[in-house]
């Protein structure tokens, strides 16, 4: 059994950490009642715990840690959410990040995961005015950017070769189950966020786009994340395959969804068009490495 740390060690660390993580910096933290309540026994103020140096008082010295705390996490998140940062501008992005860092302190050693809650935070929690004005767009853009980070670190799986696809007998296609790689994410967005993100990367100073439904695949190929635009039918088909449906059932689901409300004739026409495109789609998806196994 592990022995607990001495209470004095615990108390000092809780106070120090709270002061460092205070959004107002060390000077404000030193006067904050909530932080002062954490002062270890017998200490009444910060100066009872920390010594000045020849050139800095105790609060200034503590602020070396406090100021770098926010900047470090802000910089990490700015790398992961460059599109959101561009859409908001520096000041509003800093406001959003200060809010996020304050309300969602990191609880993991892994900084790669620290931005995992950013899309949801933008969608539901942030009170930053600039976020409120574009909340839906920013949340979807953040979702796309987060997916890039996720597929970068996702488990690796060797993709099947094109020959495997070509080896499936025609009468077995309907039963074939296409197992997708772990590093694949599919999205239906109400805004063209992928085009916006690419424009940010290309430094063409994009403005916030109007609503327009788009379907995007984010996946990893040759260890790099890629973003590909899909048609609605491609998205629906891949989504069914990810859910584990055999190809025949997946196609039927796509036709059902894509031709909802259509006449029988229109439905049959859509199905015919879809069947005509399948070969090219599957060759492309296999070449892009989206499948790790084809079970027949």
């Amino acid at each position: 059994m592990t022995r607990a740390a001495p209470a004095s060690v615990d108390a000092l660390q809780r106070w120090f950490q709270a002061a460092v993580m205070h959004p107002g910096g060390a000077e404000v933290a030193a006067e904050d009642r909530a932080i002062r309540r954490l002062l270890p026994a017998r200490a009444k103020r910060l100066e009872d715990l920390l010594l000045p140096s020849a050139q800095m008082n105790a609060r200034e010295r503590l602020d070396v840690y406090a100021s770098s705390y926010f900047l470090r996490l802000r910089d990490v998140l700015k790398l992961d959410f460059a599109g959101v940062a561009h859409a908001l501008g520096d000041d509003a992005f800093d406001d959003l990040m200060r809010e996020y860092v304050t309300r969602r302190p990191s609880k993991s050693f892994n900084l790669n995961d620290y931005g995992a809650d950013v899309p949801g935070f933008i969608a539901r929690k942030s009170r930053v005015r600039a976020v409120d004005r574009r909340r839906a767009f920013l949340a979807q853009l953040a979702t796309l950017e987060r997916a890039v980070e996720e597929v970068f670190h996702a488990p690796q799986a060797a993709p099947v070769a094109l020959e495997r696809l070509q080896s499936i007998p025609p009468d077995r296609w309907s039963d074939a189950v296409f197992v997708t790689i772990p590093a694949l994410r599919l999205f239906e967005f109400a805004f063209p966020v992928n085009g916006y993100l690419q424009a940010v990367i290309d430094q063409t100073a994009p403005s916030i786009p109007a609503r327009m439904p788009t379907w995007i695949a984010v996946y990893r190929k040759h260890w790099k994340p890629w973003r590909a635009r899909l048609s609605r039918e491609q998205y629906l088909l891949l989504r069914s395959l990810v859910a584990g449906k055999p190809l025949g059932a997946a196609i039927a689901a796509v036709v059902r969804t894509a031709s909802k409300g259509d006449s029988q004739a229109a439905r049959e026409q859509k199905a015919e068009v879809l069947f005509g495109q399948l070969g090219a789609w599957f060759r492309e998806w296999t070449a892009e490495g989206l499948f790790r196994e084809i079970r027949v």
Binding site: R14, V20, M21, Y65, Y69, P105, S106, K107, F109, L111
Partner: peptide
């Protein structure tokens, strides 16, 4: 401490 990480 207390489950939080300062990354410093």
């Amino acid at each position: 401490v207390a489950g939080k990480n300062s990354h410093d």
